[in-house]
Design a protein around this nucleic acid. Structure first.
Lengths: 197, 197
DNA sequence: GACAAGAACGAACGGTCGTACTATTCAGAC
DNA sequence: GTCTGAATAGTACGACCGTTCGTTCTTGTC
């Protein structure tokens, strides 16, 4: 049947935004049901447990992330342009896929880093995949001779991630209007160091 | 009287570690009281409200941070050594001042970035002070001619913060044993770019 | 040792949480 | 139109939440 799938999708889309604000633990089934005009028990039946809801919310986020960040970026030309595309699309994605509290992966990373369980396990997988996506893109930039042979793709991924996290904090906590400019400047410096010679 | 102060200190020290794990919202008065063999109401009386407990926990964290990170770093020679001291002491501080869940400011930044209130306001202040501390140290490194004149202290602070956040995520979420090495390499690259000529 | 103030306690409050059951409504195949 | 299973609603539960209140123990001062 199809109605269930549809409701489920609506729940997860809302859960994604709510969890970005309140965290995966702060995400409450009652609140979620109220927002969607569903009964608590009706909503609950879709997931059987809160932990499963949390995991599915991450799963849903990952699917949307692939749709709006990774896949389009892979359509950019190999090499540096693709690295840029990944970066720029990451900056925008919490608005493209509505997450009122900012990137859910940033929030979940801090929340789950010391809470064992299925949600943490899945998040770690996703985060590893993301770092590997960046690293692979950097490798292709080396293959295209855009970047020097000496560039370490994993180190590059680490540093990009740092810029993203600093941006997230400056923009959201400090409400620093110049956060985007700072992030781009840091990114350009990183690119220049990889490219230069 | 003095007994109260003493208990209060013990509560805050424990609250700091607990909040680093569960977040300032996840921090529960009942749990905290249980850990310290106090009654819920007895503990509560020290703070009058949960929000005040949260703010005081941040305040306590800030004092300890100044003690073990900022003040000792300011004892290092002006210029690049002082920048290094800030960085290295930051890396270690969640172990020096026990925070089982990692740096509480990192956790609180993500948690409070969209939750208005006294705790958020205080955290923003603290974070601004911290960035300014880094920037001032960078300015002194310029004055000592360790760094080029063209270095932007605020941009430098932004990028250091990024490295710290990336380290936190790699070490804690991904349990990446090489996180420290990655962070130091990124830091050296940042220093080299500021120094070079 | 009396006394007052401070510190801690125990019980209870109204709420919300996740979860378990049962009952009802509804969509799609025949 | 009927039947069936999926989808949703309703109700109740025990646990824990922050908070209040009145009481009791402890501490420091005279």
């Amino acid at each position: 049947m199809r109605k269930g799938e549809q409701t489920r999708g609506a729940i997860l889309e809302r859960a994604l935004s709510l969890a970005s604000q309140l965290g995966l633990e702060g995400l409450s089934i009652g609140r979620l049901a109220g927002d969607l005009d569903l009964s608590k028990s009706g909503l609950f039946a879709h997931f059987d447990s809160k932990e499963r809801l949390q995991v599915q919310t991450l799963e849903h986020a990952a699917e949307r992330f692939t749709e709006v960040v990774v896949r389009p970026a892979l359509a950019a030309p190999r090499g540096e342009p693709r690295v840029r595309a990944l970066f720029e699309r990451w900056l925008r994605w919490p608005r493209v896929v509505p997450q009122a509290g900012g990137c859910i992966f940033v929030a979940a990373a801090v929340e789950l880093d010391d809470r064992p369980g299925a949600a943490r396990d899945r998040l770690v997988q996703l985060q590893r995949t993301w770092r590997e996506t960046i690293a692979a893109t950097v490798r292709s930039a080396k293959a295209e001779h855009h970047f020097q042979e000496s560039v370490d793709p994993e180190q590059f991924a680490f540093e990009i991630q740092g810029i993203m996290l600093a941006y997230h904090q400056a923009a959201r906590l400090l409400r620093d209007a110049g956060a985007g400019a700072r992030a781009r400047q840091a990114f350009e410096r990183l690119l220049a160091a990889a490219r230069r010679r």
